[in-house]
C-alpha cells in the first residue's frame, strides 16, 4: 500500500515539482501509513528506485542509451556500451536512498507524536 502510494504520488507530482518533492511525499505517506521502520524504508526505497528506473528507461531506450553510456564515463566508469545499466542502477539507488531515509524519519516522527497503542 505504502509502496503504491509513494509511487503514484511521486509520479504525478514530479512532473511539476523538483526532484526533492519525493522526500516530503515519503515523510508524509510513511507518517500516515508505515507499519514499521523496515516497512517505511523498503516501501519508499522500492517505489522511487522503480519509478526512477522506469522513467530513466523511458528516456533512454529511444536514445539507444547513447547519453547514459557517456554519463557512465563521466561517473568514472570505463568506456563501455553497458554503462547505461550501471548509471540506471545508480539513479535508482540515489533516488531510493533519499526517499527511504525520508520515509524512515516520517515513521519515527509518528512514533514520537502518536502513542503506539493507537496504531
Amino acid at each position: 500500500m505504502l509502496f503504491i502510494l509513494i509511487f503514484i504520488i511521486s509520479l504525478v507530482l514530479q512532473f511539476f515539482l523538483p526532484w526533492w518533492i519525493i522526500a516530503p511525499i515519503a515523510i508524509g505517506m510513511s507518517y500516515w501509513k508505515a507499519t514499521s521502520g523496515r516497512n517505511a524504508f523498503t516501501s519508499a526505497f522500492g517505489a522511487i528506485f522503480l519509478l526512477w528506473i522506469l522513467m530513466g528507461l523511458l528516456e533512454s531506450i529511444p536514445n539507444e542509451n547513447l547519453l547514459a553510456n557517456r554519463v557512465g564515463q563521466l561517473l568514472m566508469l570505463p568506456q563501455s556500451s553497458f554503462n547505461w545499466i550501471i548509471v540506471l542502477l545508480i539513479t535508482g539507488i540515489i533516488g531510493g536512498l533519499a526517499a527511504g531515509f525520508s520515509a524512515l524519519s516520517g515513521y519515527y516522527l509518528r512514533l514520537a507524536f502518536i502513542k503506539p497503542s493507537t496504531i
Binding site: 522513467m55 536514445n63 547519453l67 533519499a98
Partner: peptide, 18 residues
C-alpha cells in the same frame, strides 16, 4: 547528484530520440 540523475528533470531528459 539527485538533481542530475532525476529522470524527470535531470540528464535523462537530454537523451534525444533517434
Amino acid at each position: 547528484l539527485g538533481k542530475f540523475l532525476d529522470p524527470f528533470h535531470g540528464f535523462w531528459k537530454n537523451a534525444e530520440e533517434k
